[in-house]
């Protein structure tokens, strides 16, 4: 990469890291709106963008079974990163959008990304009818409970429909998700009950798939504390229909911060405070020149949960402007199941 490429990447890293919650966000929010613990979600309005907040995402993952008997994982994310807490006309809009698409098999991992400016129609989200797009990538439907998704890169693509009757599930305390002992937080809700079907396009041909999908919606202006260096984020579909969201925000200085939500099959969430959920790396693999944990032991004593989580493909590395690990996992132990794992901040 030439010098310019490097610096443009830096530019995006800065944005992406903000979106992901690193890069030392100021403790004051420079005019950006601050998450409010008393906020009540309002749907479908909240499915749309919140330009007054610095960062926001529509984060979709799915564990899929192919007609060929193989298992697959897919990720599609649309990020919004605001340079200023306003929406502007045309190119002057300070809203920046970027999208990531990835597809994982047992032996291969594909990823692609897109960048776009807000204000000119190249990327954006409308709440009703729901549509989220960047370039030719599109997640759209009559509503967010009934959407179709098309996206892809040079070697892969997917064309999926995602449906559910289940309600959206607030994370944390009624959707106010605290991220650090010092109080950083976000607005956060999920839709972990999608039934997914459709087609994957792979270098060897097309595969019909069905499976389970999970959408995270989150927005904030200051996600992490300064000393937090990365996170490990689990979203698991467990046997019996329950779901588990759990994350560890790693912090050598102030100590790790964990959070989890147990989601009953009917969608009822049970949030757990810092420390209730633990995640212990068991084995690391060398991925893209660094050591990354690919086998974990998770415990949530409140739900008698003690499982091992194992990467389906250890090399599920997204080598994008901001690189991170994101891929499907299998769950064994007290509970069986599968899900997705995202790990950032590993140098």
């Amino acid at each position: 990469m030439n010098a310019k490429g490097y610096s443009i990447a830096l530019m995006f890293c800065a944005s992406f890291a903000e979106a992901q919650g690193f890069a030392g966000l100021g403790t004051d929010a420079e005019g950006f709106a601050m998450p409010d613990a008393g906020y009540e979600f309002e749907f479908p309005t909240d499915h749309g963008p919140h330009p007054a907040y610095r960062i926001e995402w529509w984060y979709l993952t799915a564990n899929l079974d192919g007609a060929d008997g193989q298992t697959y994982g897919m990720q599609w994310t649309l990020f919004r990163s605001a340079l200023a807490p306003t929406e502007g006309d045309g190119w002057s809009s300070p809203q920046i959008w970027f999208g990531h698409a990835a597809l994982t098999t047992k032996t291969a991992h594909f990823a692609a990304e897109r960048f776009a400016r807000g204000g000119i129609g190249q990327a954006g989200v409308t709440a009703e009818p729901f549509e989220a797009w960047i370039d030719d990538w599109r997640l759209s439907g009559p509503s967010l409970s009934d959407v179709s998704l098309r996206a892809g890169g040079e070697e892969f693509g997917y064309d999926l429909t995602l449906k559910t009757d289940a309600p959206f599930v607030p994370q944390g305390e009624n959707g106010y998700s605290v991220k650090a002992a010092s109080g950083q937080a976000s607005h956060y809700y999920s839709q972990p009950f999608y039934e997914v079907s459709g087609t994957l396009a792979l270098p060897d041909g097309q595969v019909e798939v069905t499976g389970q999908g999970w959408l995270d919606r989150e927005w904030s202006s200051e996600l992490l504390a300064r000393s937090q260096e990365g996170w490990d984020w689990f979203s698991l579909h467990l046997g019996g229909g329950a779901r588990l969201m759990g994350f560890v925000l790693r912090d050598d200085a102030a100590g790790d911060y964990t959070s989890a939500t147990w989601i009953a099959p009917d969608g009822t969430p049970t949030p757990y405070p810092d420390g209730a959920f633990t995640a212990e790396p068991l084995r690391a693999a060398e991925v893209a020149g660094r050591d990354i944990p690919v086998r974990w032991r998770l415990k949530l004593p409140g739900q008698a949960l003690d499982v091992e989580v194992t990467a389906v493909n250890e090399q599920a590395w997204n080598p994008l402007a901001f690189p991170y690990w994101e891929g499907p996992v299998t769950v064994t132990g007290s509970h069986a199941g599968r899900g997705y794992l995202e790990m950032t901040g590993y140098e």
Binding site: N2, K4, I8, S15
Partner: peptide, 18 residues
């Protein structure tokens, strides 16, 4: 990355630019 000259890069102030 390779169009527009190399210096446009040092500036990471995307907001100031756009």
């Amino acid at each position: 990355a390779d169009i527009a000259p190399d210096t446009v890069e040092v500036e990471t102030d995307l907001a100031g630019f756009i």
